[in-house]
Nucleic acid binder design. Structure first.
Lengths: 228, 228
DNA sequence: TTGACAAGGTGTACGGACGACACTATGTTA
DNA sequence: TAACATAGTGTCGTCCGTACACCTTGTCAA
């Protein structure tokens, strides 16, 4: 962070614009969110979403991706604009408009994200027991969660949580965690396979003292399709 | 518009923030959008969405509602945030982030919206044959239309197009226009009535030389519910 | 007055999708 | 080789969505 010597002037007051990102993953069969502990005021020492100020020549999507990469080391993941929060006093420093995003990262990636310069700490927190959050970030998370669950129903967004290869049981587990209910194994498999979006790798996954499971992969891993 | 004497300075460059609104209605059995002709540069003389700069102490929703009221005289209608557009060169003057909204207005309201000071003209344009538009407003309209059609399926948003009392044939016509396909009368009525969201007024609508239709009203006109 | 007109209003039957439900298969390990 | 633990599989009933045609009722003109 450099200390600028010049200032930037406008005939009318301008708000600051930031992006903030709600990063979801599934860890230990729990939906979890990535938070950073703020190293500086305001809300110093409190947990917050990764995010920061928009550069003047930077696209919004690029800003969200950059902040995510800088503050947590995560990149190349599914990232979608969520909503723009702009209540007048949501930031005590000045008027700040936050264009929020949500991201989905596979289970195995980034077991321990790294903390950046302006973050005292970075860590995964189960959605069910989040700490108190800075600014209006709890509202942002609530909306992101609502959107995520809604999209499960009519898109293939859940595959964004999966690693490159996975078993049907693992996939079912992801759906069960997100929907917070158990699903019938036969119906689940019937529905997923009928979408014809995943294919067998031909290999088997051996783990524990039981029958090995077939491994699958997503045919088009980056694509999120609307179904039904 | 006053000419300010002071200027506003920041240690880092700040973008300007605007709201723009896509106003839909149904006129003469066509989906139509309200556009204003720009009185000032840039894009002077071109058609654009109603909208304008965010006041520094104004909430985003309030800004969208105010701009809509000031530029077109419309108020009290359904208004929902759509998406935030922020490509770096979408406005030639300076960096501008636009938080966009869409609004739905009943068929009969505002047959002739009034033009405001910074608009040379205001008028309804059929969605199927829009003129060339200023900035990236064509993209904004495309996204608003997509959202509107998607919401038809899983919400009661279509009622926002209806006047206080209406007939089932009129309601069906709205759905047919939005979905761009004709619907079976019996199935349509069965589905709508099973929602139990509208009730008979007890009156009949006489028009033309045929059997009069029953009038209905929405039980909770301001509410947009998620169905299914 | 009556008959033609034009839109309003109504019920049934079929097919497909979804949900409930229980047992066999297979590799591991003791 | 037997117990264990998870993998993997098919049927049947129900409900919902869709297809489909005729009678009703007020108006208007002859």
């Amino acid at each position: 962070m450099r200390a600028p010597k010049e200032t930037f002037s406008y005939p009318y007051p301008h708000p600051a614009v930031t992006t903030d990102v709600v990063v979801f993953t599934i860890r230990d069969e729990r939906l979890s969110i990535l938070l950073v502990k703020r190293a500086n005021p305001p809300h110093q020492g409190e947990w917050a979403l990764p995010g920061g100020f928009l550069a003047i020549d930077e696209d919004l999507d690029a800003c969200a991706a950059r902040e995510l990469r800088e503050e947590t080391g995560i990149s190349g993941v599914y990232l979608e604009q969520l909503y723009t929060f702009g209540a007048t006093h949501r930031d005590p420093r000045e008027r700040v408009i936050s264009v929020t995003y949500y991201a989905l990262v596979p289970q195995d990636a980034l077991a321990t994200p790294r903390a950046a310069s302006d973050a005292a700490d970075v860590g995964w927190h189960p959605f069910e027991k989040l700490p108190d959050l800075a600014f209006d970030h709890a509202d942002i998370i609530a909306m992101a969660h609502q959107r995520l669950v809604a999209k499960l129903d009519y898109s293939t967004i859940a595959f964004q949580f999966m690693p490159e290869v996975f078993t049907l049981s693992e996939l079912q587990c992801v759906y069960e965690v997100l929907l917070n209910q158990s699903l019938d194994k036969r119906n689940f498999r019937k529905r997923i396979l009928s979408l014809e979006l995943i294919e067998e790798t031909g290999k088997l996954r051996r783990s524990g003292k039981h029958r090995p499971a077939r491994e699958y992969r997503v045919k088009h891993p980056k694509r999120v399709e609307i179904i039904k």
